[in-house]
Design a protein around this nucleic acid. Structure first.
Length: 375
DNA sequence: TCCAATATAAACACGC
DNA sequence: CGCGTGTTTATATTGG
């Protein structure tokens, strides 16, 4: 079997090289200072390295050493200090690309180099599975990237600043009751509705679900409920259906199946879930979901879903976002295949390529390895 | 700078 | 009238 991860990493290097070439006229091809030359020897885009460092930092650790294809980066001060102007500077890749263009992403994919979602898309961060503790940790990513970390000492002082608006590309801090969840309101609503047995909830229940699973909102300013209602009304992904008799005030809200992929894309724009929450140890941390959180989703996933039913992709995504990828490993391999096929087949309109990339990114994020399509 | 996505606030209507 | 729900508008923020 071909080492897919290695291929993907070669793609990363090739894509970086393409970007490097694209940027050349802007940078001007002059001889550089020694410092510049040293910076230019980085085997990864500077911004990419910073994003990896921030992701590692989100677990309370610090990035100490990053090894890419045998090339070592161990001075991150220089990278942090570098100006934005040099963000895209990448040395010519140290590996031969060997005419792998057939597997290259579309040209516009280069833009994704500046986005963490691109890392997910290319499956590079999947291997990051840091654990708490002070011992040094070494991880392999894509069999060619090695990240060494150590516990940050001292841990960064909590900032009194208000929580960042979501979504944000920066990885979220480890979950805590006082921190705002890194999910947008549409994602929160999506999760709440998808987790419901009937996949329909009245507003009140949506509030309750959010408060139950994200304690931040227990003491958040009341405006967030207004935001939820605003989101339900304005977001065409959510539909109001007739209220069941005896429900009381209000209607039931559902996710429009036609717009589920939009919500999935929104999920794809969310930052990677906190590594601590994604660790396979199911010991529920503070603010982490109850194991019984999504019994219906889990049942759906285990019930050999029909091919093409993208709600299983949604369910898989929601499950993985909440439990971590380990949840999906409990599923039969056939379920992985169905999810994979669904992701590839369901979107055949003009934007299908993007849809597929998003779906595959979500699968990667969820830890599901899509099987290569049969030729 | 522009734009899209999102958050937040507020006003208002409606029905119980 | 109060309250919850739903709609709409306006504005701010953030990141690409």
């Amino acid at each position: 079997m071909v080492n897919l991860l290695s291929i993907q990493f070669v793609e990363l290097l090739f894509a970086s090289f393409s970007l490097f070439k694209k940027m050349a006229p802007m940078r001007g091809e002059r001889g550089g200072s020694p410092a510049r030359a040293a910076r230019a020897s980085l085997p990864l885009p500077r911004r990419l390295i910073r994003q990896i460092a921030r992701h590692v930092a989100s677990s309370g650790r610090s990035l100490r050493r990053l090894e890419v294809s045998g090339r070592v980066i161990d001075n991150f001060d220089d990278i942090e200090d570098a100006s934005d102007e040099s963000d895209h500077e990448v040395a010519q890749p140290a590996v031969a690309c060997g005419g792998n263009a057939g597997n290259l992403p579309p040209a516009d994919h280069d833009d994704d180099l500046t986005s963490l979602s691109w890392l997910q898309d290319r499956n590079l961060l999947r291997g990051i599975n840091l654990t708490k503790g002070d011992v040094e940790d070494t991880k392999m990513i894509g069999s060619q990237v090695i990240i060494k970390t150590e516990a940050s000492t001292p841990p960064p002082a909590p900032r009194a600043a208000s929580p960042p608006r979501t979504p944000c590309k920066a990885p979220p801090s480890p979950p805590a009751a006082h921190t705002k969840p890194p999910y947008s309101f549409s994602c929160l609503i999506f999760m709440a509705i998808e987790a419901a047995p009937a996949r329909a909830l009245p507003v009140k229940e949506i509030y309750a679900w959010i408060v139950r699973h994200f304690p931040y909102f227990r003491h958040a300013p009341q405006g967030w409920k207004n935001s939820v209602r605003h989101n339900l009304s304005l977001n065409k992904c959510f539909h109001k259906v007739a209220a069941a008799p005896g429900l009381g005030k209000g209607s039931l809200w559902t996710v429009d199946p036609q717009h589920r992929s939009t919500l999935l894309q929104a999920f794809g724009r969310q930052p990677i879930p906190p590594v601590a929450a994604a660790a396979e140890a199911p010991a529920p941390a503070k603010n982490s979901p109850d194991p019984q959180l999504f019994p219906f989703l889990a049942r759906r996933l285990r019930a050999r879903p029909e091919p093409g039913a993208d709600e299983y992709l949604a369910a898989a995504t929601v499950l993985a976002m909440k439990y971590g990828p380990a949840v999906l490993q409990q599923l039969p391999p056939a379920a992985h295949l169905v999810i994979s096929r669904c992701a590839r087949d369901e979107h055949s309109y003009s934007g299908g390529c993007e849809e597929r990339r998003t779906a595959e990114a979500l699968l990667n994020l969820a830890g599901v390895c899509p099987e290569p399509a049969p030729s």
